[in-house]
Design a protein around this nucleic acid. Structure first.
Lengths: 219, 219
DNA sequence: ACAATATTCCAAAGACTATTGGAGGTTCGG
DNA sequence: CCGAACCTCCAATAGTCTTTGGAATATTGT
């Protein structure tokens, strides 16, 4: 028998292995937005379906994703909201510790200041006087704790549900953190439709870390 | 030029790659307790020095560890307290999602109930009436937030500093979480020296998640 | 039962990774 | 400046991982 200790560490390593490949990380990013079929995931990431399927199998083996059959397709989703949090934390660390990642991120996303993010303190001060706060994460993560009073419209439903949002009032959108692009996309969409929208600087973890209140403690 | 986006994901993957190997995870566990020389790390993990050195180089490349020369030795440490937190979160997830890991963990560590852990609610209730709370994490992590009133004696200093602890009073020891073995080791040591000690069930993240207070918010 | 659609399996190629044992560097004390 | 101690580099090996293209399988609707 291989020692139980070795088995435990091998199991831990399975999680790391799942996060050790750019394609899989991209899949996780898409899955973090909601359930998707293999085909949709392949389209979103530009991979072949056979490869997408193989990588999804790895993610499943590592306990990060689960699937269910729905008619002729198989739909995958994150096994646990904590998966999205872990991935986001890893990204945050990479951004903080690896200068070349920081540089490449700037090249890819442009200057984040272009969308005029709202600082956390500014939002905290304005929470009382009726600014609309929009949480674009999937419901499971919203349920795990959100900014008090925030409205939850997941990023992939936003286009359908624009009528729920007011015109003429400031809308502040947020999601998981600095590398969660959903809030930036949301702001762009909202502006294109004539809303007054700005992203929050950082996501829920940064908000919490600054000592601001959320509805429920972290899981 | 490879696309900036690909570079960003490649950078994120570097973090995962560092966590994708059992030997490196074991090294991280030892480093999480404090600075160590290559030799000490090799001894603690049972690896050859050449291999230890190679894996430490990987950890450094991923931005998780840093080194400094001290005379004829090179001493490594975690680059950031968040590294220990990330590793612990990954372990927590593995334990929660992978049944074989849970089983192997039981085989390896035995029944955690054997040391009669104190529940979080019980500790919270007794904080007022003078129980001694012992935080065995390294000072950097203690500084990042701890249970109010906790005494900080890092695990690797405990044997030297036993005189700071009272006899005859209950001592509750805690560290990072369920897979952080330092608090269990601490309890065993304290009991061997005649103290009345019990571990806290879970570590700081679980304590926070239950809504109990810490001195400083999470980073 | 058949065709169409969506997914998984398979084999093969090429690229990486972990580990070993030994050679080569660096630093310190005498 | 020599020897000891410690660490890193190197080359070789065995093993694993990623991706591809095509074959096989499952499900649904006709």
């Amino acid at each position: 028998m291989t020692s139980a200790k070795a088995q435990v560490y091998e199991g831990f390593a399975r999680i790391g292995k799942a996060l050790s490949n750019p394609s899989r990380l991209e899949l996780l990013d898409v899955l973090a937005q909601g359930e998707r079929s293999v085909e949709e995931l392949a389209a979103a990431t530009g991979m072949r379906t056979s490869n997408t399927s193989a990588q999804l199998k790895e993610l499943t083996r590592a306990g990060l994703a689960v699937s269910r059959r729905s008619g002729t397709r198989v739909r995958y989703r994150l096994a646990d909201p904590r998966v999205a949090v872990l991935v986001e934390d890893a990204k945050r660390l990479a951004h903080a510790r690896l200068p070349d990642v920081r540089q490449a991120a700037r090249d890819w996303l442009g200057d984040p200041a272009a969308l005029e993010p709202v600082t956390r303190d500014e939002l905290a001060a304005r929470l009382a006087d009726g600014v609309v706060v929009l949480d674009v994460r999937p419901p499971a993560e919203y349920a795990g704790g959100h900014i008090p009073g925030a409205l939850n419209i997941p990023a992939d439903r936003l286009a359908d549900r624009l009528t729920e949002l007011p015109h003429g009032t400031d809308i502040v959108a947020y999601c998981r953190g600095r590398f969660c692009l959903m809030s930036l996309d949301a702001v762009r969409l909202l502006r294109a439709r004539g809303h007054r929208a700005r992203p929050l600087d950082g996501g829920i973890p940064e908000w919490r870390a600054a000592g601001h209140p959320t509805t429920v403690p972290a899981p």
